[in-house]
Nucleic acid binder design. Sequence first.
RNA 1: GCCGACAUAGCUCAGCGGUAGAGCAGCUGUUUCGUAAACAGCAGGUCCUCGGUUCAAAUCCGAGUGUCGGCUCCA
Length: 628
Amino acid sequence: MADKAADNMAVAAGGDDNGHGGEDEVLEAPVRGSADELLDAGAHAPIDAMRHSTAHVMAEAVLDLFPGAKLGIGPAVENGFYYDFDLSRPLTPDDLALIEARMAESVRADHPFVRREVGFDEGRKLEAEAGQAFKVEILDDLAKKAVEAGGPMPPVTFYEHGPFRDLCKGPHVESTGRIGPFRLLSVAGAYWRGDEKRPMLQRIYGTVWETQEQLDQYLWRREEAKKRDHRKLGRELDLFSFHDVAPGAAFWHPKGWRVYQTLRNAMRELQDRRGYEEIYTPPLVHQKLWERSGHWEHYRDGMYLVDVEDQWFSLKPMNCPESSFIYRSKLRSYRDLPLRLSEYGVLHRNELSGVLSGLTRVRHFVTDDAHIYVRPDQIAAEIEGLMGEIRESYSWFGLTPTLTFGTRPDKALGDPATWEETEALMRGELERSGLAYREKPKDGAFYAPKIDIQVTDALGREWQTATIQVDRLMLPERFDLSYIDEAGTQQRPVAIHRAIYGSLERFIGILVEHFGGAFPLWLAPVQAVVIPIADRHVPAAQELAAELRAGGVRFVEVDDSDNRMQNKIRLAQGQKVPYMLILGDREVEARSAAVRKRGAGKDVPQEILPWAELAARLGEEIRERRLG
RNA sequence: GCCGACAUAGCUCAGCGGUAGAGCAGCUGUUUCGUAAACAGCAGGUCCUCGGUUCAAAUCCGAGUGUCGGCUCCA
């Protein structure tokens, strides 16, 4: 923990993670895999008791099939359970089927779960004799804790069913027969106690539910999530690709880049309205800047270094230090504030190879970053403005943001009274914003309280997008920022780090999955396809396309292939194009088009609209960023 | 980075010691068609890379790279 805190202390201006991939600086992370946590398998809700019981049954099956297997821990988790094992060989998917079959036998046998409590020494002896080294370790930790607390040795509880016994706090279902329909899902490596220095165990994940219907529903949701996987849709919709010559960096295809630009332009339009000014600073920056910001000392491993004439430069992992150079490029008056500098800077972070994943975890990305320099008395008003920006921009996607307010951690820098003052301001604005928020005490950055933005997508999955931090210390102090107040004296400004989308890459990944590739008209890379029924209708189709473009529908295609109309419809459908406009003799004659709208059911009567009206309607739908 | 799995045509996949296959997409030709796949032909591959075993390797072994599922990390 101490090391971790030290790292964070040194991050200096580096505070704004701005939502790239994730999380915050955890100063007070719970000790993972602590003995208490290990024993208390999280089985509190009734369904969790069943999930945890299923984990026991799975351990029984594994022990049966792999004599000598050592058991790690096996808690209930969201939607299911897992159990960690140390086995003589790697598991294969075929093994899962075998284990499942063996589990089914145990369920049929309907063994009762029996709780047994013994003295500490006897319990430890039982596990030691069984060769369960990990369990012994858990017990020794418990004993150590008891000694430290000056208390007596705790008793040890086991749960037994049939031939199987496990160190466990419970609770469990009555008997194995009470276990509902289950399915083993996957095998993965997991460090013992989450510590990369400890042995790697094999973790089997499974899911179990009260009813077959619930299991089917869950498996369906998994399938649906797979179908919406942005990596798959990105290929199918020709949005982007990845190549081994640049791991962790997307190659944006024309259609993907349309989405990217549309998204960025929407934010630029909002920022113009809100008085932001856009800047651009160099991506390659000298070592001395990173020394000053603290990155050099503590994040060098995560930075891409470039040797230029025997001097070290780094591709920037964040924008804020450079933003401060522009702030300091001239003397600032209190009248200049708030100064809102936005930047779509190209950032590089050398993420570990194993964590890369599509657009959601990349090494090269761009954030809709901004640094807002304000006087202390302007903080509240600025936050209020930011809350409005968040509410508005997320409404473009039909997403409801949830905010998480992280307050002063124990190891915070600076004066607690100042912290409390800032927090009170922020809390007040959170309340007033009407947005849903939860407070996570002590979850702020060590130099600034922060607000994280999360969204829940159409499948109910939560994603972290961006972060707002009210920084009165790091950027202002480390980079010695000042302004001249009414009295002519130097004052420190406050720097608000903020992003709304966070990483554009990640945000597009989320949107692709949220919409399942069916982007609303304003965001769609192909907004309309004009489908001439026969070749003789092609010239009219071109005319219609031109009229639509003139009306503000930028991305219109004419399918003049010699496919039959049916196939053209099928292809456009597969590309999830919002509007198909079909032209045959009747329509050309009347200068109209048959409108086939994406998602409209068969029972909806088809509209035939004049070209001019179509252009006007679609143009309006785009300008208003309607969701369709 | 760690554990495991995977890598064959643009895509989805089959082949698993004996000179590389399908469907879709592509190209060419025919077809000009009324709301989710017209017909025919052609072309397309250092079987991820490097090394090894073997008379013979897409296939077996090793290393590397990338991807996927997790773990750890995430300024």
